[in-house]
Design a protein around this nucleic acid. Structure first.
Lengths: 193, 193
DNA sequence: GTCTATAAAGCGATAGAC
DNA sequence: GTCTATCGCTTTATAGAC
């Protein structure tokens, strides 16, 4: 529904691409499949994305970037304590993963790994996404009074541990890795108080 | 060299498949490309792996499993202190990644994410690999005197954080994520002493 | 065990009518 | 902007000679 109704053709194509890349990666996702799921024609896909599959993948990565940034921003604003906020983020990710039947992990990781060192445009878009996510955590920690160097390093590990735990949760079809990661990250953050 | 000389045909095929899947994933790796890099013919590939691409991917995952387990076992045996050993592991991963021109990340993660929830045989092999790696960390922590529940949870986060940091290091072509992860994991482990 | 040839299907991309 | 048809190529997989 969210990819078929109430959005223009271009937006439907980007959303369908993002979801397919999230579930099966870049190489396994065909343009025919995208146009079918987006309820658009192949001609429309090339009309909006003359750069073909690569250009489309870059837009899909940017879409996933905004999507996860929104989730992250929400929980960081809702919960005052940074350690509790990160633990809550891990819980939200676990719930979303379970609700999707363990199919919808990080929207960009699979494509990022497939393309790293081989498709510069996609690699750059993915790098930018991770940077944006780290910046959100970094700002939260700075506003909570953590010194610059501590906040910088913690931002890296918070995002990377959530990424690794989500991957593990998806493969083992269990919320445990994310639940444990949430507790450990909270403990790590609190150890710098 | 390691995939062309001094190994039998079957072993060359598995090694070539593992390396290609490590660098570009499962879907982007063709059987023609595998047979070319393994210096074997397509007929030989199907002779040894009648189950086709999926059976070959499962064997390649198992190969990557053993490969990383060996690296992990080495450093865990070499360094007595568990926190220092894990930090050393992060350093080794960063060095290997840089030396490969940021191409050789985790040998199984990309394929695991591509296949999760879609190719049961591959998902199971990947799940088994992560379980094996956690067991190595778990045993090290138990032998170092950590209680069962603490060792269980730490094993999860050690592997998952290393996974996430290696992914991040690959995408950003920087050793920083792994260096930071090594320090944070050591700090987390020490916090349970 | 190794090799070549080939089938059947799908891929990304393009052209051109509407 | 949308749609269909098609090109050229590659894919997984099989057959069968050697």
């Amino acid at each position: 529904m969210s990819t078929t109704q109430e959005y223009g053709t271009r937006e439907r194509i980007v959303r369908a691409t993002s979801r397919l890349m999230q579930q099966q990666g870049f190489a396994a996702t065909g343009l025919k499949q995208i146009s079918r799921e987006a309820q658009a024609t192949l001609g429309s896909v090339y009309h909006f994305f003359p750069g073909g599959k690569t250009e489309l993948a870059v837009e899909a990565i940017r879409h996933g970037d905004r999507e996860f940034a929104e989730l992250l921003r929400d929980v960081l604003e809702r919960v005052d304590d940074p350690a509790a906020a990160i633990a809550g983020c891990a819980r939200d990710l676990a719930a979303g993963l379970r609700e999707s039947g363990w199919l919808d992990g990080c929207p960009i990781t699979t494509t990022a790994l497939e393309s790293a060192g081989r498709v510069p445009d996609i690699q750059r878009a993915a790098e930018q996404a991770f940077q944006n996510w780290r910046a959100l955590v970094h700002d939260k920690l700075r506003r909570s009074g953590f010194p610059e160097d501590v906040a910088h390093d913690l931002a890296h590990t918070v995002i990377n541990t959530l990424e690794g735990a989500e991957m593990s949760a998806q493969v083992s079809q269990s919320e445990a890795p994310l639940e444990i990661a949430g507790r450990h990250l909270a403990r790590l953050i609190d150890s710098y108080r």
